[in-house]
Amino acid sequence: MPYILVLFASRHGSTETLAHNIAEGIESIEGISALVRTVAPIGTSFNPEISDIPEQGSLYCSVEEFANASGLALGSPGRFGNMAAELKFFLEQTSTQWLSGKMIGKPATVFTSTTTVHGGQESTLLSMMNPLFHHGMTLMSVPYTEPRLHAQSGGGTPYGVSHVAGPHHNAIDSETAMLAKQQGKRLAQLALRIMND
């Protein structure tokens, strides 16, 4: 069965929760599945002596899983308005797939979580889009026709679902969770449409 890769970096769990919400939305569409993966810390990535099984949580992603995906949902906490270094490092290992055009035309979307309201959510989302444009992927947004986008006061954005965790790493509210599920659902529908075209 074709799958959409839900790839994320997460330090305190908010981005990981969004990843699982997006995966749930993907799984609600028949004919495609979600593959949830994280990235290894810098210093352990692509070391053949290091296991690809972390002590807990999601498995580390391989470049092969990235290349064979029918779509991609990419998530990161905001780091000075940019994606996390370990996620950027992973993407920098995909030049072979870039050169071969392996990802061209495949749909992708992005999501984030920050500690503060002004933590650079939109610039973080845009930073994740840059390498996906270089891969020739088809970027998908969260349109304003989605009613929950209008109701958000702690996140949202048309660039991708987002969450303001606050200094105490607050749980994701039900509206944001539903927005993430809807984003995953739309991504799955687009992936199937592109595959069947």
Rank of each mutant, 00 (worst) to 15 (best):
I22E: 04
I53H: 01
T116R: 09
R37E: 05
K106R: 13
H118Y: 05
T94G: 09
H150A: 13
A69V: 04
Q56N: 14
T112W: 03
M83N: 08
S127N: 07
A23Q: 11
G71E: 12
P143I: 06
G75T: 04
V142H: 05
T17D: 10
E146H: 10
S58K: 10
P54I: 03
S70V: 01
H12G: 05
M103R: 08
Q189L: 09
T176G: 04
F133S: 12
T96I: 11
S45M: 15
P54T: 07
L149V: 02
A9E: 14
G81S: 03
K88I: 00
L179P: 04
G71K: 15
S62F: 11
H168E: 15
F46Q: 06
S162T: 15
M103A: 04
L7D: 03
E86N: 15
A19V: 04
G25K: 13
T112R: 02
E86G: 03
L132I: 01
V110E: 03
N82D: 15
R79L: 15
L126F: 08
T157D: 07
H163A: 08
M83V: 06
A85Q: 12
Y3W: 12
E86P: 00
T124H: 07
L132P: 08
I32W: 12
A85M: 09
I4N: 05
T94V: 07
V142R: 06
E49I: 02
H12V: 08
G136S: 06
T124I: 10
S28V: 01
S127L: 09
Q97Y: 01
E64C: 12
H118W: 06
V142C: 01
S62T: 14
L187F: 13
G184L: 12
G31T: 13
Y60G: 00
A19Y: 07
V6F: 09
M140C: 00
T124Y: 11
H12M: 10
I22D: 02
E92A: 00
S28T: 02
H169C: 13
